[in-house]
Amino acid sequence: MDQFDKLLRQRAAEEPVPIPSDYAGRVFQACAALSEAPQKIHHRHWGRWLAAALALFIALPNVSTSAAAAMTEIPGLGALVKVITFRSYSYDDGHSSMDILVPELSGSDAANAVNQEVRTYTDELLTQFYRDCERVGDGYQDLRVSSVVLANTDTWFTLRIDATQTEASSYAFSRFYHIDKATGQVVSLGDLFRDGAEYTAVLSDEVRRQMETQLSADRTLAYFPDDFDGIDPEQNFYFDAEGNLVLVFDEYGIAAGSMGMPEFTMEKNIYQSLLKEKYQKG
C-alpha cells in the first residue's frame, strides 16, 4: 500500500481539476447509511470500512484522471481502471446529416495515443463531411460513426471504429486500434511478427485461397480474387474468441458492395511460426 499511496498522492497533487472536497465524505456517508442488525454490528464494522475503501478505489479513477494514471502504474492493477467516456458530434441541415459517437480512453500513455489517433481520424471525416455539404448543396448525404470494444482483457485491448458514408450509395469502412497491455504499446499488424517475416505474403495467399474456395462453393458471391494484390502491411485485424487472427476489409476493397465488409479468419497454424516469441504463447 505504501507504493500505491505515494503514487496516488503524487498524481493527485498534479491534478488540474481537484477531486470534490466532500467526495470521501459522501462515500463514507453512503456506507454508514447501510442498515444492519444491532447484534451483527460488532462483527461487521470492518466490512463497512472495507466497503468504503473499495467504493473509493472503484470510483476514484472516474473523478480523477491523474488517479487513474497512478493506479495503472501499480503492478496488476492496470486492467482494473480503464475509464471510457465519449465524444459526440451531430449535424442536420435538412439535407446533410451526421452523427459521430466515439470513445475516449484513459489510464495509460497507450490509451492517450489511441485517443489522438481517433481524434485525427474523426477530424478528417468531419472535414470531408463539411466539404461534401458545400459540394452537394441541397442534395443528400449522411455520415454515421460508431464504435465497439472488441477486447479488454488483462493483456489486450481492441477498439473498433465503424463508419458509413451515404450519398448516392453507401460505403462502410472500419479502423481498429489495439493496445498490448503487457508492454503498454499501441500495436498494429506488423508489430505482431518477427522482423523479416513474410507475413503479408502468407496471409495474402490464405485470403486468396479462401476467396476462391468460397466462390467455388457459391458462384453468387462477388469477390474479386484476380484484382487482389495482397493485404496491406497494416491491415485491419482483430483476434476472435479462439485467438485466431481475423483480417477485415473495407466495403468494395476486394468484393462488390453486396458483400459488405469481408472478414477472413486465419487459423493459428498458418502464421504462428512467423509471430514474435511473446505472441506465439497467446
Rank of each mutant, 00 (worst) to 15 (best):
A241W: 03
S170M: 02
C133E: 10
S216C: 08
W156C: 05
D227P: 03
V81T: 11
D180Y: 07
R208N: 11
A24Q: 12
Q128F: 06
E277R: 10
R26Q: 04
F28Q: 03
M211E: 05
R194M: 12
D154A: 14
G196V: 08
L7I: 02
I58G: 04
K281Y: 00
R135D: 13
Q185C: 05
M211T: 05
F4I: 08
P233L: 08
S64H: 08
D162C: 07
M259E: 15
T155W: 06
A51W: 00
A51C: 09
E234P: 01
Y130K: 05
T200V: 13
Q235I: 01
G230T: 14
Y238K: 13
R160C: 13
K40N: 08
V102G: 03
R119L: 04
V63W: 01
Q280I: 08
P225Y: 02
I231F: 08
A13C: 01
P225E: 02
K278R: 12
G257T: 14
L56T: 02
Y223R: 14
E242K: 14
E36F: 00
Q272D: 15
L7A: 10
Q128R: 14
A53M: 12
D5P: 00
Y140H: 15
E14W: 05
A163F: 02
Q165G: 01
Y171R: 13
S273W: 02
L105S: 11
A12K: 01
L105A: 10
A51K: 03
A59E: 15
I231W: 10
Y271N: 10
E263D: 06
A163W: 09
D22K: 04
L189A: 02
A32Y: 02
L101V: 11
Y121W: 15
F239Y: 13
V202H: 01
V207A: 04
W49Q: 04
L101R: 03
L159D: 12
D218W: 11
I231R: 07
S88V: 03
L8I: 14
A111Q: 04
E134W: 02
D2G: 05
F4N: 02
G253N: 13
F224R: 15
E212A: 07
Y171A: 01
L189T: 05
G139L: 07
